[in-house]
Design a binder for these strands. Structure first.
Lengths: 221, 221
DNA sequence: ATATCGCAGATTGCATCCAATGCCAACGAA
DNA sequence: TTCGTTGGCATTGGATGCAATCTGCGATAT
């Protein structure tokens, strides 16, 4: 009774979770319209929990709602995407600092595994999955509530462009990514918070600058 | 047209706005329970738009929802509040940097007015209002979407504790606040973004450290 | 006396139906 | 031909009623 039956208790949350996965997986393109009735039918529910789900996803930054008009899969302009990366560059090192003292050896080992696996080379979909797991796992020691949620939101809202970018240049398009991952794991294993923060900030910053060189990813339609 | 003024957005948004003001004004204490039916009756609406409003306020960080159980006015622990200030310390200078180049002379003059007015001394309620207007106005030149919203959320979620703290030490409890405001306006008028960012970061940091000396503001019940 | 089980009241969650709003195409006038 | 208007249609927003779930109090057994 205290386990987790109420986690996905409400239909609204269940629908939100499934929709979130679908959007993050790329099943819906940014800017695509979402009709309440379609989703309701797809999940065998009425439109009330669908509206609930859309609200949740809006607060996640994955959906844009316009009153009396409809819902669309959120899309970012290049400027907005760079903005997100600027925010991440400043707060993810902070989150990492909260996390580092609480990372158990097992997790540090797993991080090394993930970095090695990415460096060894994989397909794009796997790389995206591993990269996401790598970074979010490095934050898993943090017991923060607001900061962790905020970072999650930022990751989600840029997931699509991260995929588009990786598809463009390939999972090995820039070796620096792997070097930075290795340096980050090294700093974490030494417990060197300061160095880890610096490497991470540089990692995010470099990604932002690379993204800025590909405005075609943000073409409006 | 002859009906009620429901044209300014959906009823859910109207209710959310009114509730938000009430919470920020302190009409509801953190941790207080919010029953859907009470709010619905108060606004002469059904519970559907009330739930919409509660969702909006949850994404604002002002309300905590628990499935099948209810809604409460959000309350922060000291650790969470310090966390919010750590985030603000890192991203508000960034927002200020986006804003500064677009601040018109009129706004700079108004900022000077506000700083002077606070320094001249007022009651607590007025000080809180002026301080909020001052800082948010200094960000008004920024055309950012995500960053501005994030900062707004953080301000809202800590508003209650800012009020409690100011009530405790008075609007003149620490002169440094006014000096920092004056330094900030000076840097803004000179267009010195770097200095403005530094002053602002210090301002937020000092406030965080002061808050940390008053854990009694966060007593749980 | 204390802990546990169970029932009743209260509260939230969801489905159905109806109203309001926005979009769009067809029509008419300049 | 082009612009403005108007009507219908599709979609979202809201109210009511009912089902599911949780909290609190009381009874009972140990």
């Amino acid at each position: 009774m205290t386990t987790s039956p109420s986690r996905d208790g409400s239909a609204g949350h269940r629908i939100a979770g499934r929709l979130r996965d679908a959007i993050l997986r790329g099943d819906y393109a940014p800017g695509a319209r979402i009709r309440q009735e379609d989703i309701a039918e797809e999940f065998g529910a009425s439109r009330i929990p669908v509206r609930e789900a859309l609200r949740i996803l809006e607060s996640d930054g994955l959906v844009t709602l316009v009153a009396n008009t409809g819902a669309w899969v959120a899309h970012l302009s290049l400027a907005e995407c760079e903005e997100v990366y600027q925010i991440r560059e400043r707060i993810e090192p902070l989150l990492l600092r909260y996390s580092l003292p609480n990372l158990p050896p097992y997790t540090l080992g797993r991080l090394q595994e993930l970095a090695d696996q990415m460096q060894a080379g994989t397909d794009v979909a796997t790389f995206l999955h591993l990269d996401r797991e790598f970074h979010l796992l490095s934050y898993s020691g943090a017991t923060t509530s607001i900061l962790g949620d905020t970072v999650h939101r930022l990751w989600n809202s840029t997931q699509h462009y991260r995929r588009a970018f990786t598809l463009l240049i390939g999972p090995d398009g820039n070796r620096a990514v792997h070097y930075e991952h290795q340096l980050l794991v090294g700093a974490l294993r030494r417990g060197d918070s300061e160095d880890a923060e610096r490497v991470l900030a540089g990692h995010i910053r470099r990604t932002r600058l690379e993204l800025g060189r590909h405005p075609e990813l943000f073409a409006q339609d």
